[in-house]
């Protein structure tokens, strides 16, 4: 293996958890997250000469992953986009989330599970551009500026999309808020 490949694989290994977390939040499930990681890391390896040593590797790959995710969604003909102006009732999604068990009260766990399931479903109903903003800013803690750079759009667009996405999610999850 050449020096560049060794360095790249070292960075991936160091940041495995964060990379997987972003992938699964964008993709919505483990199988798609695995495919997303394969695609995004291949792209990352090929652009690795553009990565500046000392900068945040996870955020750099997160940008590539977000673009890959958006490309997939745009190319995917059967994906249904939901208008945020007229949100529609989506089909029941019974696929359970694979959640880690904890020692909480079983009833509390059941409520949490229901909430997480509903949240996952609501996130999947968001248009991909909006979901990406929620994942990057609300879930991953990126600033508006970083999210704007990752999505290649103005900060005002991030602010507007985030607000509309939050209104949508608040409506969908009102029973848990």
């Amino acid at each position: 293996m050449d020096e560049i490949t060794v360095e790249f694989e070292k960075l991936v290994k160091l940041n495995r958890e964060a990379l997987y977390r972003i992938a699964v939040r964008l993709a919505g499930n483990r199988d798609d997250a695995e495919d997303l990681l394969m695609e995004a890391l291949t792209e990352a390896w090929e652009s690795f000469s553009h990565f500046r040593s000392g900068t945040d590797f996870v955020r750099w790959v997160a940008t590539i992953m977000t673009h890959t995710f958006l490309d997939w969604r745009r190319k995917n003909d059967h994906y249904e986009f939901v208008s945020l102006n007229e949100p529609k009732e989506s089909d029941e999604n019974d696929e359970p989330m694979d959640l880690p068990e904890d020692a909480d009260d079983p009833e509390a766990i059941a409520v949490k599970r229901e909430f997480w399931k509903a949240t996952n479903k609501a996130l999947d109903e968001l248009p991909p551009d909006f979901k990406a903003v929620v994942v990057l800013v609300d879930m991953e803690g990126l600033s508006y500026e970083e999210a704007a750079k990752a999505l290649n759009c103005p900060i005002g667009t991030i602010r507007s999309r985030l607000h509309r996405a939050r209104i949508f999610l608040r409506e969908k999850l009102k029973d848990w808020l």
Binding site: Y20, R21, V24, R25, N29, R30, D31, A33, E34, M97, D98, L99, P100, F115, W116, T119, N120, V134, D138, M139, G141, R166, L169, R170, L173, K174, W176, L177
Partner: peptide
């Protein structure tokens, strides 16, 4: 509600990888 939503989204658990 926005604060609560943001907090809960941040706390969303991640399924362990296959």
């Amino acid at each position: 509600e926005f604060f609560e939503l943001k907090r809960k989204l941040r706390e969303m658990p991640i399924p362990s990888p296959k």
